[in-house]
């Protein structure tokens, strides 16, 4: 066990835990934001640099601070380590810089983007970004590519987190897509725009933190906050598929099916393409009940669960408060 202090809160964690996971054990207020790290995917993380933290004491034995900010998702804790995340001005400054870099070539087409409402980049820039942009240069753009019948890739929105590449490597059979070119011309692509064709390819949509990979069966059907998420499961014929999903309803109609995401926005269990794209009737599923959504999420704004109507004040009451 290693004793680690993050933002003044002490916790004992098993040896080999990363700083990020130790912070997640403490709670969401302390955990650094992540754009590329995905606990279900091996070797993910380290690319986006949003989870940078300051290590003010390396360990019990060697209490010297680390000279640079470190990526918390790829740095393991040492006994006696002291970490500053939200309490460090250096970290906040660097993180604001990273947000600015990520948004530099991002089109900010949230009003027409299907990811809006469940987009990690939206949350990140809301929490850690600056108020205004400092660039007036033309942004990089790409043509949209259909990779397969059901998935569309819109590289313009991509922040190159490599999550879908790791998914393609680790979850699906046979690697069919990766990164081509380099620098800010780098793009996620299948070689010569070939279709991704295997049972688990749909998971790249769930792992994408932005709207670069979207579900073509759901595109432009509805804003996500107008749909009602419901937990459901079925006995899937595919052995690797858990069959545990969220159905997103609008009225009686199932608009889309996704995997279940935990509080860090990560899929709990990967699902197969049959469950995702082909089973869109309520009769295909055993309904478990409404999905609990974090009340800070915009998705819960139009929700039937946990909804508390704000108290309506009368005019004289408002006067009393303001006086």
């Amino acid at each position: 066990m290693a004793k680690v202090t993050i933002d003044g809160i002490q916790i004992d964690v098993p040896d080999g835990t990363t700083i990020l996971n130790a912070a997640r054990m403490i709670g969401p207020d302390v955990a650094p934001p992540t754009m590329c790290y995905y606990s279900k995917l091996k070797t993910s993380g380290g690319y986006c640099r949003t989870c940078l933290v300051e290590v003010t004491a390396g360990s019990e034995k060697d209490p010297r601070p680390m000279p640079k900010l470190v990526a918390s998702c790829r740095t393991t804790v040492m006994d006696g380590m002291v970490v500053a995340n939200n309490t460090s001005a250096k970290v906040k400054d660097a993180r604001a810089g990273v947000v600015e870099f990520l948004l530099l070539n991002h089109p900010l087409d949230c009003p027409v983007c299907d990811q809006a409402g469940e987009c990690h980049l939206q949350d990140l820039s809301y929490d850690h970004g600056n108020y205004k942009t400092r660039t007036d240069f033309e942004r990089r753009t790409f043509e949209k590519i259909d990779i397969g019948e059901k998935i569309q890739l819109h590289m313009t929105r991509c922040i190159l987190c490599y999550r879908c590449v790791k998914t393609a490597e680790q979850i699906t059979d046979g690697r069919v897509h990766g990164v081509i070119n380099r620098g800010d011309h780098a793009e996620i692509s299948t070689y010569i725009e070939q279709a991704i064709d295997n049972d688990f390819s749909g998971n790249v949509i769930d792992v994408c933190p932005v709207g670069a990979l979207t579900d073509k069966t759901f595109r432009f059907k509805s804003r996500v906050w107008f749909t009602k998420p419901v937990d459901a499961h079925r006995n899937c014929e595919n052995e690797k598929c858990s069959g545990k999903v969220v159905l997103w309803y609008q009225g009686e109609e199932v608009l889309r099916v996704t995997g279940r995401k935990d509080q860090w926005g990560e899929v709990e269990e990967f699902i197969c393409n049959t469950c995702r794209f082909d089973k869109k009737q309520t009769s295909d599923w055993t309904i478990e009940g409404p999905r609990k959504i974090n009340r800070h999420s915009v998705i819960s704004a139009n929700h039937y669960m946990n909804m508390v109507k704000p108290k309506e004040f009368k005019l004289n009451e408002i006067k009393q408060i303001t006086e």
Binding site: G46, Y47, R49, L102, L104, T135, R182, G183, D184, A186
Partner: peptide, 18 residues
């Protein structure tokens, strides 16, 4: 440096071009 950045991590990928 803009031309040679590998494009893995965001500060270098976007910052060198900027």
């Amino acid at each position: 440096y803009h031309h040679e950045s590998c494009g893995q991590c965001s500060p270098c990928r976007e910052g060198t071009g900027w």
